[in-house]
């Protein structure tokens, strides 16, 4: 029941202040989606079991379904909507789009927020590093392979290399 008294707070989301009134038992997921209309952040279980709701707080990917919104006040919250600069996608977004790493696209925001944090900390992640990082993001469409390849490709391009996807990953062996 939501007879709880609302609090008014200002969130810093994707570099912009959002002033929102919300009940203190609301999760960050609920406040992002329902109060700020930032519906790019998804939900698949609301119990911390799927990773679809991943956002970054102070650069760390976390599960917004298990975070209280009040605890995010005064912190730097980043969602999938904050990745692209204007119309320009990030290298990772480009690579995900090019490789078809987003099939239905529902796990994609969570995957992007997790992988983006990895690429910030690790310029040359191995396949195993990528798996370790994405071990909390379920995907039912891709079998993860195109996601791994997109992260690898994006890492190479972010290092300034002129990398292209392998022939095998696009056309098969």
């Amino acid at each position: 029941m939501t007879d709880a008294k609302k609090v008014l707070a200002t969130f810093q989301v994707n570099g912009e202040p959002h002033e929102v009134a919300f009940a203190p038992h609301k999760t960050l997921l609920e406040v992002l989606r329902e109060e700020m209309n930032l519906t790019g952040t998804k939900h698949g279980c609301e119990l911390g079991e799927c990773g679809a709701c991943t956002v970054q707080i102070d650069g760390t990917p976390i599960l917004s379904c298990l975070s209280l919104a009040v605890d995010a006040v005064g912190r730097d919250v980043r969602t999938v909507e904050g990745l692209a600069q204007g119309h320009e996608l990030t290298p990772l977004q480009h690579c995900m789009a090019d490789l078809g790493a987003a099939q239905c696209g529902y796990c994609t925001p969570g995957v992007l927020m997790t992988a983006e944090a990895l690429l910030r900390d690790n310029k040359s992640p191995t396949r195993d590093d990528i798996k370790q990082a994405l071990a909390g993001n379920l995907c039912r469409c891709t079998g993860y392979l195109k996601i791994f390849e997109a992260v690898e490709l994006a890492a190479a391009r972010m290092r300034g290399e002129t990398a292209e996807p392998s022939k095998e990953s696009i056309h098969g062996s």
Binding site: G40, V80, L83, L89, Q93, M96, A97, G100, A102, G105
Partner: peptide, 15 residues
């Protein structure tokens, strides 16, 4: 291997 018509919106949280 061209992009899907909705590829950009899928990777931007806009779908």
């Amino acid at each position: 291997p061209i992009r899907k018509v909705d590829a950009r919106s899928k990777v931007s949280g806009l779908q």
